[in-house]
Simulated scan of single mutants.
Amino acid sequence: MIFYKYQGTGNDFVMIDDRENQFDDQDLKLISSLCDRKFGIGADGLILIRNHPDYDFEMIYFNADGSQSMCGNGARCAVAFAGFLGVVQKETHFLAIGGPHEAVLTDEAVELKMGNVSGVHEAGDDCFVDTGSPHHIRFVDQIEQYPVVEEGKQIRYDERYSPGGTNVNFVSPIREDELFVRTFERGVENETLSCGTGVTAAAIAYAQDKKEANVKIKTLGGQLSVRFKRNSDESIEDIWLTGPAKQVYKGQIDL
């Protein structure tokens, strides 16, 4: 099987051109083995690009453990891959889990329009935002030294999020319009260098007092930005996640 490896601010994905529908997406053991960093290719997730009669393409996304959810950085990488394949040009309308998305592809970045968000919800002393994937948000000091994995595991399996669990984001403001975000991702079961839906949730939770916001995001894997508009009922729309998406290499693996 021919595959490609892409990364978006350190969030990395195995990308497969499956427009001929040859990949068995019911074989979750295979998906997990391909994402295994010791015995497989190694990635935070696996993405299939498929044809769709009503959209430019369909993105089928799997976490490293074979579970499925929306992935912002994965979707940006999927758009870059679709551009590489010649499926899309500068603008695209594609389908992902949870519904359709728009994106703009440039030489430097991919701008992805996320789905609307109902609002920010209390979660004890923290808060919760669903950006297509569930995200618990905790604001912390000294984020560079914060025990992200230890604390993230406890919250990820908290009974309030049973049975599916949640992603966990630890957030620290750098300045008024910039955040440092670190994320423990369910499905990967570890800290990742970046999480697109997570930084989107963090930006929305941070700028609760603003009708419009454009927030810069620092992650361990690089820089992202999130812009959005807030309605009078506290719902959020016109959400755009922007950042780089790069091809790392092309390879072949025997299945």
Rank of each mutant, 00 (worst) to 15 (best):
V199I: 14
V188K: 03
R156Y: 12
R156M: 14
G164M: 11
P173Q: 07
V199N: 01
N167I: 05
G115K: 13
N190D: 15
V215L: 08
F94S: 01
G115I: 11
G221F: 07
P147R: 11
P163C: 04
S172D: 13
E108R: 09
L105E: 05
T131S: 13
K229R: 12
V129N: 01
D130Y: 15
P163L: 10
A103W: 05
P134S: 06
G98C: 09
V129Q: 04
R156W: 13
N167M: 02
S133M: 06
F94I: 05
G115M: 10
I155N: 09
D126F: 06
R227P: 02
T183G: 01
P173W: 11
K210C: 12
K211G: 09
F180P: 03
I204R: 01
N116F: 11
D107S: 12
E108W: 05
A96V: 14
N190G: 11
M114F: 10
C195M: 02
F228E: 01
G152H: 04
I137H: 00
E178A: 14
V117R: 03
K218P: 09
L220M: 10
A123L: 02
S118A: 15
G198K: 01
S172I: 00
I217E: 02
E191C: 08
Y146K: 03
T192Y: 03
V188N: 05
H136R: 06
R175Y: 15
G99L: 04
V181R: 00
V171G: 00
T219P: 11
K216T: 12
L224M: 06
R160K: 14
G119Q: 00
G119L: 04
E102A: 06
C195I: 03
N169G: 10
E185L: 01
Y157N: 11
T219A: 12
D126P: 05
I143D: 12
F170G: 02
G132F: 14
E212A: 10
R160E: 08
A123M: 04
I204L: 14
A202N: 11
T183P: 00
P147S: 12
R182V: 04
K153V: 03
V120I: 15
N167R: 04
G165A: 12
K229A: 07
M114E: 03
L220I: 03
N169R: 03
P100D: 03
R138G: 08
T131Y: 06
Y206S: 00
D209G: 03
E151F: 12
G152S: 09
E150F: 14
F128E: 06
P134V: 11
K113W: 13
Q145Y: 13
H101K: 01
